[in-house]
Design a binder for these strands. Structure first.
Length: 502
RNA sequence: GGUCCAUUCGUCUAGUGGUUAGGACGUCAGGUUUUCAUCCUGUUAACAGGGGUUCGAUUCCCCUAUGGACUACCA
């Protein structure tokens, strides 16, 4: 069998949506599983929609995800160029070929005329369609008498080239995921293949490029399923062997109806893009939100596919090994932001204390704290299992760096009693006597004192926590005071007694 | 409106012509803990509806409903 070659073919019209990333991922997994080639082709045949920076964004996103491109605009390859605008000259001859074969024709109807006809049909509750049912009444080379149309072209009148959809034919085709599908050609229209601006449309460019690049499997979004009959017909008209097609299910909104959109992310506070998109409206990215790329990829891979086992955590290598296109689902998947977080939690737990400490050091540096790696490792060890993201370490450990500025009123009400100041004063003088602030040492010291005096453990420790932390949260007290040190501990007790009062 | 696609716990899903319909996220409840989390244990909850086929359908077929995509000189 010929070598497997697949392509991811986005349009550079803005940042890549996570649905697009998943399409790229499935293409990549399929390629690598089959020792094949993964191609990145930029489909920029609509010059009006080109967005500066989008190409770079796409490539950076794939790179961040660990999806390596074998052939593409940066990587090169034998089948280049890999940007359709750079292949512009190539398409016209294929459109002409179709005209010679009688499967395509020139059409002169202006956009304004077509719009008017569409509007009229819509008013009558119908859908305008341009095909065998009415093409002889429209303005094109099939309906014009004699050589009128030739003159029009020679005069430089704008025209498009349309595919001549057959009349009343049942078109049979197959999709790897969805099986056999039949559509009657009467419901399809004479799609424009070549635009008046000299550029091909998606349909032509796509088929020509997939053929020329020897693509064996077309794995793309479900939104393309309705144009699959056209594409099959195109392959037939050219006399080319069609690749295998697989149409992926959509990513749906977490709640409500419809497919996942940028608005959902904004509304519910999760990113719909892999990376921050710096142009236009601000849009968060998974990378900037603190997701690990392997967690992100793992989460995405399982949205619409699973290997049939109960395994949920996969390295890219494992994904490649277990991926099969047949196990991709038919129906759309709702995106679940909670589960996305859970994946990151799993990945963060798998990392070593040292790795996380290094990441956290970077985080602190950006906020003006320059801390050695050793104390940070001790800190990370204390809170690692409680967090899902490195940035969460800060909200769990802010009080390690800064004494409380205020004391949670709820906790004060619940934990600060009449005798709290007296207990803390006693505790303070007890701690002042020792210089050994290791957790085990202070623990023994304090606990035996509490026992000796017959105090209530909770009464002492909760008040102590309130003074040191300012709230009812955080790791064990002896770990905290060991980290902040003796002087800071004593200071915070003083401050707490003074500020909380009574 | 037309064409096409889809439908198992709230969500992601496993699965089979005969199963106690399994797992994960979430929820809830216990346990651990000096607090808050984490963690552990348990709990919760599903085959869209109606017809067939069959000894038997969640599983196969049809219809309905619902959801979705498409319906541009956009991809």
């Amino acid at each position: 069998m010929a070598q497997v070659r697949v392509r991811f073919a986005p349009s550079p019209t803005g940042p890549l949506h996570i649905g697009g990333v998943r399409t790229a991922l499935y293409n990549y997994l399929f390629a690598k599983k089959n020792n094949g080639i993964f191609i990145l082709r930029i489909e920029d045949t609509d010059q009006g929609r080109f967005v500066e920076g989008a190409e770079e964004y796409i490539m950076e996103s794939l790179e961040w995800c660990g999806i390596k491109v074998d052939e593409g605009i940066n990587e090169g390859g034998k089948f280049g160029p890999y940007r359709q605008s750079d292949r512009k000259e190539l398409y016209r001859q294929y459109a002409d070929d179709l005209i010679h074969k009688g499967d395509a024709y020139y059409a002169f109807d202006t956009p304004a005329q077509l719009d008017a006809m569409r509007a009229e049909e819509e008013k009558a509750g119908k859908t305008f369609i341009y095909n065998a049912s009415n093409r002889m009444g429209l303005c094109n080379s099939l309906s014009s008498s004699g050589s009128d149309w030739k003159e029009r072209i020679e005069k430089g009148e704008p025209y498009v080239i349309r595919y001549k959809m057959p009349l009343g034919e049942d078109i049979h085709f197959d999709d790897v995921i969805r099986g056999h599908i039949v559509v009657n050609s009467n419901t399809l229209d004479d799609k424009v293949l070549f635009k008046s601006d000299g550029m091909p449309t998606y349909h032509l460019a796509n088929i020509v490029d997939d053929h020329l690049m020897e693509i064996t499997h077309v794995i793309r979004g479900e939104e393309w399923l309705p144009s699959l009959p056209l594409h099959f017909l195109l392959y037939r008209s050219f006399g080319w062997q069609a690749p295998l097609f697989a149409h992926l299910p959509l990513l749906l909104k977490p709640d409500g109806k419809g497919k996942l959109s940028k608005r959902d992310g904004d509304k519910m506070g999760f990113p719909v893009f892999p990376l921050f998109w710096p142009y236009g409206e601000t849009s968060k990215g998974y990378r900037e939100e603190g997701y690990y790329p392997d967690a992100f990829v793992n989460m995405l891979a399982l949205l619409g596919w699973n290997p049939g086992t109960e395994q949920e955590i996969f390295t890219m290598y494992e994904l490649i090994n277990s991926f099969t296109i047949e196990r991709v689902h038919k129906s759309g998947s709702r995106f679940d932001p909670e589960k996305a977080k859970w994946f990151n939690h799993q990945y963060l737990q798998k990392r070593s204390v040292n790795e996380v400490a290094i990441e956290y050091r970077e985080f602190l540096r950006a906020r003006g704290f320059h801390i050695d790696i050793k104390p940070l490792e001790r800190l990370v060890e204390l809170v690692k299992e409680r967090v899902s993201f490195v940035k969460d370490i800060w909200s769990e450990t802010d009080f390690f760096f800064v004494a409380p500025q205020s004391y949670d009123p709820e906790v004060v009400k619940k934990r600060w009693k009449e005798d709290s100041p007296a207990l803390l004063r006693e505790l303070r003088s007890l701690l002042e006597q020792t210089d050994d602030f290791s957790p085990s040492s202070t623990e023994v010291l304090v606990k035996s004192w509490i026992e000796e005096k017959g105090y209530n453990m909770g009464a002492v420790m909760n008040a102590f926590r309130l003074a040191v932390v300012g709230a009812s949260r955080g790791p064990h007290m002896f770990d905290i005071i060991s980290w902040i040190g003796k002087q800071e501990t004593l200071d915070r007790i003083d401050k707490g007694i003074a500020l909380i009062g009574k």
